[in-house]
Design a protein around this nucleic acid. Sequence first.
RNA 1: GCCCGGGUGGCGAAAUUGGCAAAAGCGGCGCCCUUAAAAGGCGCUGCCCCACUGGGGGGCUUGCGGGUUCGAAUCCCGCCCCGGGCACCA
Length: 835
Amino acid sequence: MAGYDPKEIERKWQRVWAEEKTWEVANPGKPGFDDSKPKSYVLEMLPYPSGEPHVGHLKCYSVGDAIAHFRRRNGFQVIHPMGYDSFGLPAENNAIKTGEPPRVATERSIASFQRQFREWGISIDWSRELATHTPEYYRWTQWIFLRLFEQGLAYRAEAPVQWCPKDATVLANEQVVDGRCERCGTEVVQRKLEQWFFRITDYAERLLADFELLENWPEHVITMQRNWIGRSEGAEVTFRCEEVGLDFPVFTTRPDTLFGATFFVLAPEHPELERLVAGTPAEAAVREYVDRAARESAEERGAEDREKTGVPLGRSVVNPVNGEEIPMFVADYVLMEYGTGAIMAVPAHDERDHEFARAFDLPVRRVIEGEDPDVARDEQGLPYPGDGPMVGSGRFDGKGNREAYAEIVAWLNEERRGEAAVNYRLRDWLVSRQRYWGAPIPVVYCDACGEEGAPAIVPVPDEQLPVELPEVEDYAPQGRSPLAAAEDWVATECPRCGGPARRETDTMDTFVDSSWYFIRYLDPRNAEAAWDASAAAHWLPVDQYIGGVEHAILHLMYARFFTKALADCGVLGVQEPFANLFAQGMITRDGAKMSKSRGNTVSPAEYVERYGADTARTYICFMGPPERDADWVDEGVEGVNRFLSRLWRLCEEVEAGEEGDDPLATPEGDVRTLLAKAHWAIDKATRDFQRGFQFNTVIAAVMELVNEAYRLKDGLYGEPGGTAAVRFAAATAASLVFPFAPHLGAEIWERLRGGRVWEEPWPQADSQLLSSETVTLVVQVNGKLRDRIEADAEAGKDELLALARRSEKVSRFLDGKEVVKEIVVPGKLVNLVVR
RNA sequence: GCCCGGGUGGCGAAAUUGGCAAAAGCGGCGCCCUUAAAAGGCGCUGCCCCACUGGGGGGCUUGCGGGUUCGAAUCCCGCCCCGGGCACCA
């Protein structure tokens, strides 16, 4: 007999799927569209094609494919596309190092991903394949940019931005981790530059509120986004500096502590600083302080345990609630990016203000009493951030601070000195990059159309898209985009006046490309529009999205923002792109994250070569719950390979043996036992599939079924209905394991049953065979297990009690004791409580 | 500091959601097949104690300490440890 030869089987079925285009689905209204089935959009995050696929990819697509197969066999028309997020820094950095154009390295990597996806047997609709670096794709990325521009959602502004000196580019806030460039680890510096932004902050409220619309997202991902958006409720209150006649609004979450404000602080970047101190004795000191702050990195400024520093301005503002004049300072613990860049300082009830007050010997005035009566009134126990009755707050004294909060805000409103306000930590999304390998931003600058020396920003008309990325020689950025060197390309004609104009030379952040790809899949060859409205209406939203948690904030929030913005532009009918999200865990080796430098990487290709794709995929799904991190162990791979081989040999054995007689109408004995096990496995697999994709226990159930078949088969051959039962067990195992090991599943099914397993509906458990006539009754005395007794499944309470008391093992513990309580759970357990 | 996860045999894990703790896998031990090995098949395998020719019996056990309950890995209260996110955000 030929042993299990995954190579041959896998090649065979991969050819079938490719030739028959098995996984392609048509759009509504197109030939081949099946309107009898409900749709299901199963999507894994598209890979960034750099080098070869790694095990993280194998996991993501194995999990997604199992879901896609399961849905198909449950009667859904599943759309399951694939593409490549093929613009971005790594290809460009490689180009700078080796001189190889980014396109060449990227397309080589794409070819490698394509080959391996086929070798893994992932059920992809290849007719919908796309790559974000192709003009056919980025043309529409540019088109979306123009729509956002029209809506005022894309704008150009000078702003302090995070600049990475190594990569010589600006970064999005999200790409700065602990003050360092996410990619290269270099400390970022602040620069003031003209940049393009998307107004994601306009959507902060909806991004929060619409968590409601999601069906099932991991709680921690929602929490991370919520933290990132960072909504705070409070009030904006205006403090006036009479000496220079300026109003300074501040944002505070604690308007109830307004009477405790004893000083006022501006951020070093505050635009009015200059006017406040120009020509005053404080000018020199303030300027020096501001310059020093500007030189410091965000990391240095944000360091923990940093001493509070600052400089008095020699000016004061008036507290609107009590008319008190309080001194002004500049200090770097106040951030320009948040709120208004200025704060009222309440040292008695805010830790940071308290530290500053101590450092500068400023008054600390308690306005809320603490809980501890001993320290309630004096300066001990300060700063006190909690609740309590108000003191030193005029007519609000004695009221609870929560109550006073509302009244103070109402009063500010009446007096027009402030109003309720909400602030967000979220900043607008900086999307321009001074880099080559990205989609060009489709605008030109025209001096003739401009005013007062400033050129006009003229959008490139839709019909002139795409603005193609020109070929260049030198990819290294020199503080301006490498595109600036392509002078023939930069010099263009103004679409508005026809005069000479210059192209924008920045490209878009790659997160822009990946913020809408899931829509393009629905109509990827459309040359007239980004997508056909009816296709989008039919398939969206994505029913199940699968990917790593590392995208919990960036990609997932940007895609949510895009969806809402496109809906507002009237070109999309959904508010949320991904109804269900599954965040897969990481695969480690030797307990550590894989890295080339550590030398603990796992190459999927190597394992696929040695054991076959079915083994590699099934192992990955068997390692543990897929949402959790899991450690790759070679012996575990072999264990799964042993299991698949065992199933294979079982198939060969039944195939070679007698056809056997027909299945019995009322199976008995071991025939029934094996059939019951098969139906138990069907039931278990189906439930675990639905319950959060617990593939590890699904596979364990199939293993149990195969083990049971091995235990019983030799006694069953020749029995009435015996061979048929073994055959049923093997075919059922193949059918259940198909979503993980599609080649083996398809092959065994074809041999034992004929036809295509993926066209078979998912098996249904026979409830007759799920229940048995007898059950194991657990007998406890005082909650401790004392005996197990076979009992009639239908037996009543009294019968079970009698049975339990009759047991010798039980009665031993009842001797000389009084039974004070009897608990009977029919079909399960008897517990006798004795004294 | 705040917010999420998580802690169960030698290892990664199960436990139908309050009812037999440890399924399936790995590792380990033993047996069968074999001239031999590999492959394969079968069995045992949480810890401790008593008994042992053979069969057996008892206690303990889900990070720690309490509680609720006839009964807790599961629910409640208080701690400890590990991982992740946010953090000078007013």
